[in-house]
Simulated scan of single mutants.
Amino acid sequence: MALSYKARRGWSLVILLIGLPVYVVVAVTLLNLLERPPLWLELLLYVALGFLWMLPFRFVFKGIGQADPDAEKADREPPSA
Rank of each mutant, 00 (worst) to 15 (best):
Lys62Gln: 13
Ala48Tyr: 01
Leu16Met: 10
Arg36Val: 11
Leu30Ala: 15
Ser12Glu: 01
Gly63Met: 12
Leu31Ala: 09
Trp40Ala: 13
Phe61Met: 02
Arg58Pro: 03
Trp40Cys: 04
Val60Tyr: 02
Trp53Arg: 05
Ala48His: 01
Leu39Ala: 14
Leu3Thr: 02
Val28His: 08
Gln66Glu: 13
Ala48Gly: 13
Leu49Asn: 04
Arg8Lys: 15
Phe57Thr: 03
Arg36Lys: 10
Trp53Val: 14
Pro56Met: 11
Val22Asp: 00
Tyr5Met: 03
Leu33Met: 13
Val28Trp: 08
Ile64His: 07
Leu20Ser: 01
Gly65Cys: 07
Asp68Ala: 13
Leu45Gly: 06
Ala27Ile: 15
Val26Cys: 12
Leu44Trp: 07
Gly65Ala: 14
Leu34Glu: 01
Tyr23Met: 08
Ser4Leu: 14
Phe57Ile: 07
Asn32Asp: 11
Trp40Thr: 08
Arg8Tyr: 06
Ser4Tyr: 10
Leu31His: 10
Val14Thr: 09
Asp68Pro: 14
Phe59Pro: 10
Leu30Asp: 07
Leu13Tyr: 08
Pro21Asn: 02
Pro37Gln: 00
Val24Gln: 04
Leu49Pro: 05
Trp11Gly: 06
Leu17Thr: 00
Leu55Asp: 03
Pro38Ala: 09
Ala27Thr: 15
Pro37Glu: 01
Gly65Ile: 12
Gly19Ala: 04
Leu30Pro: 01
Leu43Thr: 10
Phe57Gln: 02
Ala2Tyr: 10
Glu42Asp: 09
Ile18Trp: 06
Leu45Val: 11
Phe61Ala: 00
Leu30Gly: 11
Arg58Thr: 08
Tyr23Lys: 02
Tyr23Ala: 08
Asn32Gln: 11
Val26Leu: 15
Glu42Ser: 13
Pro38Glu: 07
Val60Asp: 01
Pro37Lys: 00
Lys62Glu: 13
Leu20Gln: 03
Tyr5Asp: 00
Leu3Ala: 07
Ile15Phe: 07
Val26Lys: 01
Leu20Glu: 02
Gly63Trp: 04
Val24Pro: 07
Gly50Asp: 07
Val14Met: 08
Gly63Asp: 09
Pro21Lys: 06
Val22Lys: 02
Gly10Gln: 10
Leu16Ser: 12
Val47Glu: 03
Pro37Cys: 00
Leu41Cys: 10
Ala27Tyr: 11
Gly10Tyr: 10
Val25Arg: 03
Ile15Arg: 01
Gly63Gln: 05
Leu39Ile: 14
Val26Asn: 04
Arg36Ala: 12
Val24Asn: 05
Gln66Thr: 04
Val14Ala: 12
Leu52Thr: 12
Val25Phe: 13
Leu34Gly: 02
Gln66Asp: 09
Gly19Phe: 08
Phe51Gln: 03
Leu20Ala: 04
Glu42Gly: 05
Ser12Pro: 12
Arg58Glu: 07
Leu39His: 09
Tyr46Phe: 15
Ala67Arg: 12
Ile15Met: 07
Leu49Gly: 12
Ile15Gln: 02
Val28Tyr: 07
Leu55Ser: 05
Ala67Phe: 08
Val22Tyr: 04
Ala7Gln: 15
Leu34Pro: 02
Gly65Pro: 10
Val47Trp: 07
Leu33Asp: 06
Leu44Arg: 03
